[in-house]
């Protein structure tokens, strides 16, 4: 019963923005891009929100972690 009545999920296909921009490699010094890849709390925006492809998400993950070490972006932030 419950299964038949379920409305079909509205699937909006997200496109990786980095693919659109033809980004080859995400640079850990690219502060501007990295600030858009983290939340106001400093967390990495998950793929289900950002819609990034796995390749670029992995690049972002690595770049964010490096940039945090160099104090380019915060590990955590209360100010928002």
């Amino acid at each position: 019963m419950a299964k038949t009545k379920k409305t079909p999920k509205v699937v909006r296909r997200k496109i990786c923005k980095l693919c659109l921009d033809r980004v080859e490699q995400v640079d850990y010094k690219d502060e501007r891009r990295l600030y858009r890849a983290i939340t106001d709390r400093g967390k990495i925006v998950p793929r289900r929100i950002s819609g990034n492809c796995s390749r670029h998400q992995a690049q972002i993950r690595r770049a964010v972690k490096r940039a945090r070490i160099l104090a380019l972006i915060p590990f955590e932030s209360d100010s928002y």
Partner: peptide
């Protein structure tokens, strides 16, 4: 060109 300058407006809600 990669500095955050001028991007503060995007801050809250920007990445979301």
């Amino acid at each position: 060109g990669r500095e955050r300058r001028g991007y503060r407006g995007d801050g809250p809600g920007g990445p979301r």
